[in-house]
Design a protein around this nucleic acid. Structure first.
Lengths: 231, 231
DNA sequence: GCACGATAGCGCAGCCGATGCAAAAATGCA
DNA sequence: TGCATTTTTGCATCGGCTGCGCTATCGTGC
């Protein structure tokens, strides 16, 4: 009855052997050098062989780690949504979807801040590449079903309730807008990103998030009222 | 002072000469055979040369008409949004964005019904191809900015007002859900698409649309109230 | 410690889609 | 009919993706 019987996804990074460790490391290196090149020379003007050379692996290996070139710009999206899934699974009976979302977003923005320049680069690259913005919708679709399920539980309906799906789609669409909004105006103002500013920006982000959730919950309420009137 | 001085987009199809006519025709043939193949054998398992042969043109010509393979599945999206743009431009002072959207959607669904099997095939193909669903978001983004502008006018704010963009994104996201929803359940029920049923489906579509607009307008109102309280 | 199964990384070859370019064919007009 | 314009085509190339088989390394059980 070793400790490995109770490992969680979070522990996995330490539990595993040297082999897996090297794999993660290789993946990380590839993603990092790719992001740097994308930032410097643009996504389209960076080739896979080029990234491979910079990461000291073969082109074939790059494609093996990242099936599509676009995936290089979203190296840890899977984990991000895995955490959302965990968060939803772990929520208590009274906790609403909105509260869980708030907590999740807070955790994620903390992560982004820890990454520092890295997250900023990713933001820049995606903002500068329409193709990547379109690609990101693919992941959002994944999040949509998670949120839809959570909202459906709140409403006590079936997991594929239409209203839940509508509300979920609206929520994530608004998140996208907020996310895109966060990139642009800070650049325009032109003041250096000091610690104080970052703190402010984070509070601002939460505030915007609340507005989004307000929007969505008002929408849901209106639907429920309308449905009650019909019946 | 010929008649060509006052041509609109709608007249264009007749005003132009044989040359332009043939071009449209070629484009139409390519799109049609492509959609058929996509429906029969899947998007990924249909190659450009194959489509070219079926359409009796060279592969190079196909790529010339449709820069990306995905565009073959959305042959008339540009016109669809052009009509939305026209509709917004033509709306009277009192007409809200929601009303204009309703009118537009009504017109578009009429068009779809006229196309018959064609629209159904497109629906099937997109529903069966995640890649195309992601690609469709590209066009939706275009619609988003149109709707955002219209809502911003309603609200009297600047054209890139954040709330307008949020509301617009939410609206189109919900439309997407409704659109996807329309594909699935009709198939599940398994009754033939009789005229009566189509009529019902159309009414149902309008009803769903109204729910979406209700959702959005409630959201906007909530935001305005919150903003008023802050001030 | 050793040997064996598993697997990460690699090279290769091929397919497909996208694009630039220039020749060729079709078209519209005088 | 002849000419200018535009569409269509073939060609060549490039970049990305994939399947296959080989090698080297790692992990495990003996």
């Amino acid at each position: 009855m070793s400790a490995s019987d109770t490992v969680t996804a979070a522990d996995e990074a330490r539990e595993i052997g040297l082999r897996e460790r090297k794999k993660q490391q290789t993946r990380e290196v590839i993603a990092r050098v790719a992001l740097e090149r994308f930032d410097r020379q643009g996504f389209a003007h960076t080739t896979i062989p080029e990234i491979a050379e910079a990461a000291d692996v073969s082109p074939r290996t790059v494609s093996s780690y990242f099936p599509a070139k676009e995936d290089l710009a979203f190296p840890d999206t899977a984990e991000t949504f895995a955490r959302l899934k965990e968060r939803f699974a772990a929520r208590t009976a009274g906790e609403t979807t909105a509260e869980a979302l708030r907590a999740w977003i807070a955790g994620e923005s903390e992560r982004w801040e820890e990454q520092g320049e890295r997250a900023e680069m990713q933001r820049r690259v995606i903002a500068a590449t329409p193709c990547l913005q379109a690609y990101s919708k693919r992941f959002i679709a994944e999040g949509e079903s998670l949120v839809a399920q959570a909202i459906a539980e709140d409403l006590g309906g079936s997991p594929d309730d239409l209203e839940a799906r509508m509300a979920s789609a609206a929520t994530l669409a608004i998140f996208s807008v907020l996310n895109a909004h966060k990139s642009a105006p800070d650049v325009a103002k032109g003041h250096a990103p000091e610690a104080e500013c970052e703190q402010h920006s984070r509070e601002h982000a939460i505030e915007l998030l609340d507005r989004a959730l307000l929007f969505v919950s008002a929408g849901i309420r209106a639907l429920q009222i309308a449905r009650a009137e019909d019946a």
